[in-house]
């Protein structure tokens, strides 16, 4: 155990410090420590967004460093232009969507930025699906782990929906609400398809990962609902909204899937 901690400290010290700092700043923003009382709501969203973006950036930094250490080079030149574009979109659109989410959470309410963020998440979804399908069995797919088609579709749609939901005490144009309705209809329609396809195509290991990550997401989501339910009884904090449940379920599912994929 001690050796593991020592190795971790030697390898990932910088990332650990950066991530801890971001979590501390994010939590401080969430409890409104750094902002006046009137901006408390925006601060809590900024806090959540800071932690998400920092986690993503830390993972990215780790991947870049690991690639630099092993001397592995990206094989952009060997793939076609279309595949390079797909890879670029799948790597950066999600980050751009998260940046839009963070910006929107902290700086009021700009419908066009929300729309742009939602489009980024949808582009990421589309690129992941197209990339997984087009590079099946090729050298490109061996170099890289793809997000399963179902997970990519659901995660992208859910995050885009999150950006189009009406926020409390804020007005929202009708076209953004209409887009939200289209996205949630898409989510409802996609869920059975995604799950069936995932289970049908997955092998023993994949189905084990699927079940375990779904079970983990279920427990996290139920804990969130329990907390909100009891807070409501206390008349403390906001009331439960469907987008909170969807965002928690998606994030925990995706997180668990990602971790299990690496560990199993």
């Amino acid at each position: 155990m001690k050796a593991k901690i020592r190795d971790f400290w030697a390898e990932d010290r910088l990332i650990f410090i950066l991530l801890t700092g971001a979590v501390v700043v994010g939590l401080a923003a969430m409890v409104g420590f750094l902002v006046p009382q009137k901006n408390r709501d925006a601060a809590s969203y900024t806090g959540i967004a800071t932690i998400i973006v920092a986690g993503y950036a830390a993972g990215w930094a780790r991947a870049v460093r690991s690639r630099a250490r092993t001397g592995e080079k990206r094989s952009r030149g060997t793939a076609s232009l279309g595949k390079n574009v797909l890879r670029f979109v799948s790597e950066y659109a999600f980050l751009a969507g998260l940046a839009a989410y963070a910006w929107e959470s902290g700086n009021g309410h700009d419908s066009l930025i929300r729309l742009a963020g939602a489009i980024c998440f949808l582009m990421w979804s589309g690129a992941e699906i197209a990339s997984a399908r087009s590079s099946k069995g090729s050298a490109l797919s061996r170099n890289r782990r793809h997000v399963p088609v179902g997970v990519a579709a659901l995660a992208g749609l859910a995050m885009a929906f999150e950006l189009t939901t009406p926020q409390p005490h804020r007005s929202q144009p009708a076209w953004l609400t209409a887009l939200g309705i289209v996205l949630v209809v898409g989510l409802i329609a996609t869920t059975p398809y995604a799950v069936i396809e995932w289970i049908r195509r997955s092998d023993e290991r994949e189905s084990l990962i699927a079940n375990r990550s779904l079970a983990f997401a279920f427990i996290v989501t139920m804990t969130l609902v329990l907390t909100f339910s009891l807070l409501e009884a206390l008349k403390v904090g906001p009331s439960l909204r469907p987008d909170y449940v969807i965002a928690t379920a998606t994030t925990s599912w995706f997180g668990a899937w990602f971790v299990l994929q690496r560990r199993m």
Partner: peptide
């Protein structure tokens, strides 16, 4: 648990749809 998660998520999504369309009841825990 995986099945229960998907069933719960489906119910929440239906409520999300109702909320976005401003019809139907609110989601209760």
């Amino acid at each position: 648990l995986a099945f229960a998660f998907l069933a719960t998520l489906a119910v929440v999504m239906v409520f999300a749809f109702l909320q976005s369309s401003n019809i139907g009841p609110k989601l209760e825990p």
